[in-house]
């Protein structure tokens, strides 16, 4: 009796990339970055009903240990420069989810003099979640979308510059 046959269910063959991505996407730690009203919905999403923990997501207090920044709320100009700083403090690879109309495009506060119309003016954004505020379901959906994006990334063989241009 060969060894391979004795443990058929216990062996999984996979690619290293897939394995890495699977581990990464299943423990996505997000930074607590509630800026305004959307932060309340972010908290509710982390709460018992929507329960983000089941996706392996846990809130972190500091940018240095987080993989994901959920920009939840209105980004004012005074805050914008700090947001950039916080983003730069996060270790690579890092992702940004823009939650709510305000951080997508300024939303209701496009009329304001002190609001930065969209967080993408200061940092790159991976997923935009629309809504004012987005419901916990919507945010969860956005995060699943991000997980999907993460699972398609390549780490061992990086695409060359031309390939990357073609892909994008």
């Amino acid at each position: 009796m060969s060894l391979v046959n004795s443990v058929p269910e216990m062996v999984l063959t996979t690619k290293v990339d897939q394995l890495l991505n699977w581990t990464r996407k299943s423990s996505l730690w997000y930074m607590l970055f509630g800026l305004a009203c959307c932060a309340i919905e972010l908290m509710q999403t982390g709460g018992p009903r929507a329960d983000l923990d089941r996706f392996g997501m846990a809130p972190r207090a500091t940018p240095r240990t987080s993989d994901l920044m959920i920009v939840a709320g209105t980004l004012t100009l005074k805050m914008a420069l700090r947001t950039k700083l916080l983003y730069e403090q996060m270790p690579e690879p890092k992702y940004v989810v823009s939650m709510g109309s305000c951080s997508n495009c300024g939303g209701l506060f496009q009329l304001a003099y002190s609001v930065c119309d969209g967080v993408d003016k200061v940092i790159p954004v991976d997923v935009y979640v629309p809504g004012c505020p987005p419901r916990p379901e919507a945010l969860t959906d956005g995060l699943i979308l991000l997980q999907k994006k993460m699972s398609e990334e390549k780490w061992l063989v990086r695409p060359s510059a031309e390939e990357a241009a073609l892909l994008s």
């Binding site: 100009l77 914008a80 300024g106 496009q110 009329l111 003099y113 609001v115 930065c116 119309d117 969209g118």
Partner: peptide
């Protein structure tokens, strides 16, 4: 009579909307 600034520390304060309407 306050005039809103065009930019703050290099961040522009207007956003071109899809419809071509300027915000702010």
């Amino acid at each position: 009579d306050y005039v809103e600034p065009e930019q703050y520390h290099g961040i522009s304060t207007v956003r071109e909307s899809m419809l071509g309407i300027r915000s702010g």
